[in-house]
Design a protein around this nucleic acid. Structure first.
Lengths: 159, 159
DNA sequence: AGCAATTAATACGGTACCATATTAAATGTC
DNA sequence: GACATTTAATATGGTACCGTATTAATTGCT
């Protein structure tokens, strides 16, 4: 009879590697999106434009693009909808398979891609300030390992 | 007369450090949230529970907590609303300043924190597999630099 | 050819963030 | 004490993700 059975100690909250990754992603999204405002696209949209630029005139289907970006088909469709509304991408029903959309960049899309590049690079320089190229390369390699681990876990989770 | 004035070349799309950070954050959120499902909280909620555990019985105001977490007051309020609905936190109007809420963990909150810890640690071990402690320490230091840069930029942006 | 299974995209609903606008309470100034 | 200012929290609306359910079209099997 007596006190509660729960442990009420404060938990350790060192800024771990994982917490740093989430925090950096969050801050970077916020700040870079603000920096890209003049161009009219966000960081995530820029990423999609970059991917789309790989496929040129003939375009890609949404499923194929989603796989290449390791992103859910729903997220992709939503973002494409926005980009289409804004005029940066074009979606056309494929004639050979009328379930598919052929997605490609418009001229405005290529222009937004071009216009956002310098801003992004300048932003990255500021964000990476104080680290040598060697350090950055090492971090990139380590993160690639973590990314590969997570990708494997992700595959395993979806069978 | 003539062709369009836009450059239609495909853009380089090496998995850069920045892209890796965003991707790791996204995958980690997805997979860890799934792993934590049995406990009933998400990774972001766990983070908030950890922070709340620092303040003990007397609790914190939302503004103070938002500053400590470097998160917007709105996001914080929303997540607190969810956690309160689920019974993990308690919000009480402060008597001395009736604008303020005093927020603290409930017993269920402490329990969820406890229950989610082992799962999170196991998850992290899997995600970091293949990297030595030295490498991880080095990555953590480098990410801390980037985080500090972004934090500074964020301060500057809000004057 | 006919029907079942698969596939591409979308609808719907949810979490995690953000900025800006609003409301209510406190504070500072006269 | 009265009124303008500041502050704490919330309302509103937007982007970026997710999972599951649905719809329409194709493919595969018989």
């Amino acid at each position: 009879m007596s006190g509660p059975s729960v442990d009420r100690m404060p938990y350790a909250m060192r800024r771990t590697l994982s917490a740093l990754v989430h925090d950096i992603a969050r801050l970077r999204r916020k700040l870079l999106d603000a920096a890209l405002r003049p161009v009219g696209i966000t960081r995530a949209q820029r990423w999609m434009l970059i991917m789309l630029s790989q496929y040129g005139e003939q375009g890609v289907s949404q499923v194929e693009l989603a796989q290449a970006m390791q992103v859910g088909a729903v997220s992709l469709g939503e973002k494409l909808g926005l980009l289409e509304t804004q005029g940066y991408v074009v979606r056309v029903r494929s004639a050979s398979d009328r379930r598919r959309n052929k997605v490609r960049l418009s001229d405005a899309g290529y222009r937004a891609l071009h216009d956002s590049t310098a801003l992004t690079q300048a932003f990255n320089r500021q964000a990476m300030m104080g680290l040598t190229d060697q350090e950055l390369a090492m971090v990139e390699r380590a993160l690639a390992v973590i990314h590969a681990n997570l990708t494997r876990m992700n595959m395993a989770a979806s069978e």
